[in-house]
Every structure is written in C-alpha cells, then in structure tokens.
Amino acid sequence: MGAIYIMWLRELKRYVRSRAQILVSLGQPALYLVALGYGFGPVFAKAGAGSYLQFMAPGVIGMTVLFSSVFSGMAMLWDRQFGFLRETLVAPVPRLHIMLGRTLGGATVAALQGLLILVVCLIAGFRPHAWSAVLTALVFVVMIAVVFAALGSAIGSVIEDMQGFQFLMNFLIMPIFFLSGALFPLKHLPRVLDWITHADPLAYGVDGLRGVLIGNWMFPWGGRIDFWFDAAVLAGLAAILLALGARLFSRIQL
C-alpha cells in the first residue's frame, strides 16, 4: 500500500510544484472556450440550438481531463529517459502497485485540472441548470480521469521515444477528442462516423457531463437511465484499461 501512496503523492507533488505549467495547461481549454465559444456562438444560436457556450463548456471540461490524464501517463516516457523508472521497476513491490499509484496520481491531477476549468467556465458565463449538478458532474470528471490515465499508463509502458508519442497523439488522442461530441452535437452524422463516435470512450464522458450539467443527453431514454448507462460504460472501460495498463507495465524491460 505504501508504494501506491508514495507514487500517487509523487504525481501530486509534481503538479503542485509546477505552478507555471498549471496555467499553461489551462490556457488551451480557455482559448477554446473563448475563441470557439464566442466565435461559433451566433451561428449555433441561429441554427436554433441555443447557447454554444452552454453546449461546449462540458466538452471543454472533458477535453481538459482527457489531455491532462493522458499526458500524465505518457510522462512515463521521461521517467524512462531519465532513468527513474528503473528505480521503481526493481523495487520489491508488485509492479501493479507502482502502476496503480502512478495512474491514480495522474487521474487525481487531471480531475483537479477539470475542476479548475469548470471554474473558468463559470467565470466565462457558463451556468449549470442546478448548482447541485456540479457535484454530480464530479463523478464523470473522476471517471474520465481514471479511464484516460489508465490508457496513458498503458501507452507509456509501450512507447520508448518521441516518435511513438507523437504518432499516438495524432492518431489516437486527437480523434478521441474531436469525435467525442465535445465541440459539436453527435447527431445527424454519416453512419460510419456515427459508429466511430459510439466507440469513443470520451463520448460517454462528455455526454455524462453535459447531461448532468445542462440536462442535454445524447441517448433518448431519459436522464436517469442515460446517467447510469454512461457511468457503466466508463466504469467498465476503466476496469479494462487498468488491467491492460497493469499487464503492459509489468512486462517492461529496460
């Protein structure tokens, strides 16, 4: 248990200590919020879809959590480069514990980032339909964070260089972001795209956030069932990706 805790704590310390980086990493979602939110706002409203800021704020929160958690997992690349990974790999604790500590640490940091950007959204004029919804939204923030921190750990266990990192960013993480419905409604899409969006883990996270915060659900079953469906999909994915990450991490050779 000590190993999980100390690896978790390491991630948290790194986050708290890099104050400049916190601001930098909030810059991108804030830019999306301002540029797209205000830029597309009039078009969106004219199409009769309501306020674009209201629509996209949950998406931007999901995006922040996605990138933050994936990056934390992929930071394993640097620990590999600087050698610290070796120190943890030969320690007499199950590698599962090391991996869990790292992953949960990354997820915690990502969830904190998500909360911060939620505050930014509120400042920018976003209004949830009820204030209690903010608490429920936390459930989805945490689940998105765990799913993608686990994915990041799995990826970090496999890639060994910057090329691999960039490849996965461009061909896995960016599509996950753009096809999640964070920026546009996943309705009336071509059939193939429709299938892809339903295979996108983040789509369920963004849908959950949006449903909880502004009562706008992708699936037609009504709020409560939609909530549990999204939550169940994310929980299942989290379990699968944690298992995958643990397996890949335990096989690392240096």
Partner: peptide
C-alpha cells in the same frame, strides 16, 4: 527483489524531487 539492492550505472534518481 526483496533480497538485493542495486546502484545502477546510469542515473535513476527523480530530478523533480
């Protein structure tokens, strides 16, 4: 692993701590 300790040839410290 419980029985051995190791000092690696290449660095293995955490520079951020």
């Amino acid at each position: 692993r419980q029985r051995f300790g190791i000092v690696f040839q290449d660095p293995s410290l955490d520079g951020e701590q």
